[in-house]
Design a protein around this nucleic acid. Structure first.
Length: 103
DNA sequence: GTTGTGACTACCA
DNA sequence: ATGGTAGCCACAA
């Protein structure tokens, strides 16, 4: 049996996203060696404790947008964190240059 | 076992 | 650009 379960591999991958950079759910899944797990990546992040050290805010959807209803509380929290790291967001979309791995 | 759900995607009309 | 659909995966009913 593998030493790491899917959830742990995902944690590792998210933790590997550099400060000021972002990655899509699909990318995290693929880089983690788990293609087609994009949806599960979201599920894993949702279950993270509030005091987690993981940079969950650096994970966005394939459209380069935050996967929360625009203006919602969660949306604004993630948005603020990204801005604080210098991530450029225009018209709600993240700049290509801010991806840890080219999409 | 089946069904519904969700911080997802890709494809197609 | 926009909306619907079909794959996907894990988990709770």
């Amino acid at each position: 049996m593998p030493a790491l379960n899917a959830q742990q591999v995902i944690w590792q991958t998210v933790a590997a996203i550099p400060f000021g950079k972002v990655a899509t759910y699909g990318q995290v899944a693929r880089v983690a060696g788990l293609p087609n797990y994009a949806r599960y990546v979201g599920t894993v992040l949702k279950n993270l404790p509030e005091d987690t050290a993981l940079p969950w805010h650096r994970v966005v959807n394939a459209q380069g947008r935050l996967s929360f209803p625009t203006g919602s509380d969660a949306y604004q929290r993630q948005f603020a964190l990204l801005i604080s790291e210098g991530v450029v967001i225009l018209e709600g979309k993240i700049s290509i240059a801010d991806y840890a791995w080219q999409p």
